[in-house]
Design a binder for these strands. Structure first.
Length: 272
DNA sequence: AGGGAAACCCGAACGC
DNA sequence: TGCGTTCGGGTTTCCC
């Protein structure tokens, strides 16, 4: 579940060396190995091999669900998608099952990209804005106001659920966090975005921030058997709790399909 | 413009 | 036991 909190956690650990000895900044790339090429590397294997070796890592940050690695000349963007994970080894050992890429550094350290379901992607770019520029605002950015959020919601006429999942509208929310935020805000996933009052928009932004911060606190969620360290899955209010009593009113949680995505909500607390 | 569907993947969890 | 089928997560692309 490569949603914002986990990406945030990994980016932080990569910067601070949290996972083992993983501080990337300062390290110089020696070589790159791709164990899976078909959809992993953009623009392609040849470009990676040609341009990455010799470049020093400057810093590691995050934008939306992307992990952003700034190199001396280029930029590396990593999207973990569903089952992706990053692992840093001070002395790179041999690849493990489902490892898709290894970036080997001159001092022997290695950054492994492991991804069971092969959904993840890595981009090598001279200008990261070609991708990051399309993203909507950061919900955790304090400069992003509830008033601005309300304006953006009112400018569209869409079901709340798909709109919140739209990364160009707001960056970083996935299916879990959207369901949880809508529940906390007492809003129905099918409610129309342009029907929200300023107060409802404010409450929704507050709920989004609460859910994201809670996810970060718990190191993200490990659901669908893909374990990646977090335990936020033990704190869901509605997600994957179909039929269980609503923690607020006791009515069974319902599950519907919205924009092909499963959506969990309380039919009483979240009226349209 | 909004919404639906399919495609990309895999392994768990099911049905028979 | 061993098949086959379904499912779901994020995103892009195509179509109405």
């Amino acid at each position: 579940m490569p949603e914002l909190p986990e990406v945030e956690t990994i980016a932080r650990s990569l910067q601070q060396g949290g996972r083992g000895q993983g501080a990337l900044p300062g390290r110089v790339i020696r070589s790159v190995r791709l164990f899976w090429e078909r959809t992993l590397a953009e623009p392609g294997k040849e470009e990676f091999m040609k341009h990455l070796p010799g470049q020093r890592v400057i810093e590691v940050t995050r934008r939306g669900k992307f992990i952003v690695i700034r190199l001396e000349r280029d930029w590396l963007l990593i999207h973990l998608r569903m089952s992706g994970d990053l692992r840093v080894e001070a002395v790179a050992s041999k690849p493990q099952p489902h490892d898709r890429m290894l970036i080997l550094f001159e001092d022997g350290a290695g950054l492994f990209f492991n991804d069971t379901r092969k959904f993840g992607r890595v981009w090598l770019l001279t200008d990261p804005q070609s991708i990051l520029g399309k993203l909507g605002p950061e919900p955790l950015d304090e400069a992003f106001t509830a008033r601005e959020f309300h304006t953006r919601l009112a400018a569209r006429k869409r079901q709340l659920k798909p709109l919140l999942l739209d990364q160009t509208f707001l960056a970083g929310l996935g299916n879990i966090y959207t369901d949880e935020a809508l529940f906390l805000a007492h809003l129905h996933p099918l409610a129309s975005s342009n029907a929200l009052s300023q107060g409802q928009a404010s409450r929704l932004l507050g709920s989004i921030r609460e859910v994201l911060n809670e996810g970060i606190l718990h190191n993200g969620a490990s659901i669908d058997w893909v374990y990646r360290g977090g335990d936020f899955q033990n704190h869901f209010h509605v997600y994957q709790r179909t039929g269980e009593p609503c923690p607020v009113c006791g009515k069974p949680i319902e599950r519907i399909l919205v924009g092909q995505r499963s959506s969990h909500f309380c039919p009483v607390c979240q009226s349209v």
